[in-house]
Design a protein around this nucleic acid. Sequence first.
DNA 1: CAAATATACATAAGAATCTTATACATAACT
DNA 2: AGTTATGTATAAGATTCTTATGTATATTTG
Lengths: 113, 113
Amino acid sequence: MKNSQLYKGSLNTIIMKLLEENGKMYGYEITQKVKAITQGELNITEGALYPALHKLEAEGILDVEIEKVDNRMRKYYKLTEAGTKETVNRLAELEDFIRNMQSLVNPRPNLEF
Amino acid sequence: MKNSQLYKGSLNTIIMKLLEENGKMYGYEITQKVKAITQGELNITEGALYPALHKLEAEGILDVEIEKVDNRMRKYYKLTEAGTKETVNRLAELEDFIRNMQSLVNPRPNLEF
DNA sequence: CAAATATACATAAGAATCTTATACATAACT
DNA sequence: AGTTATGTATAAGATTCTTATGTATATTTG
């Protein structure tokens, strides 16, 4: 997604969170939304996005619904019931992850002395 | 390191930050330190750690120095000069990453209306 | 109006990172 | 005597992503 490797592993969580918030979205829309929210810093590539969407669908996390708009295909994805539940876990994991990384990088000085 | 994929890509940054802070450390010490700081949540496996250390050394980020303590080998790693400079970049990237992830997951409601 | 850009999805080869398993060796504990 | 802790190492496979390519329509721009 970027030259920084840090984003590796975060794509599924990003997709699920956006869908939780926006109800249904299509692939291209997700890339644009992420770009906008991060002010251009995070650009999701198609080579990462589409396989990820297909896998989440295969796992029963997402449902797909095809629409034709302006003679062009759109595949709208939305969370299944199981996906909605799983999203809660993923977001909790993300919070833990961020908290742990901040502990590692920004350690509280030991105040015992 | 954990069942969460989120940590993928963060190991190098963690190693470099710990070395910046502690001067020199050996592999096993790094695993224990990380475990302690994250209260057991993040366990770095040897299969991830040692190849990462070797790679950082090959890239000129780390220097190694072998010591024998209690009849057992220890390989102490420390940042090279180039490694110290690179650590600044990595930590900035981590801050950007965390900020971006928080924007995505914890979006500010639009207050324009 | 032709060319470039934007919209929209897809996949395949290869790179990078990590998991899991295994290996070797010494020290300390039970 | 056997398990756990300390300490390093590697190899096979899984997962995730990059890079490149392909197809197709709509819109903008020179």
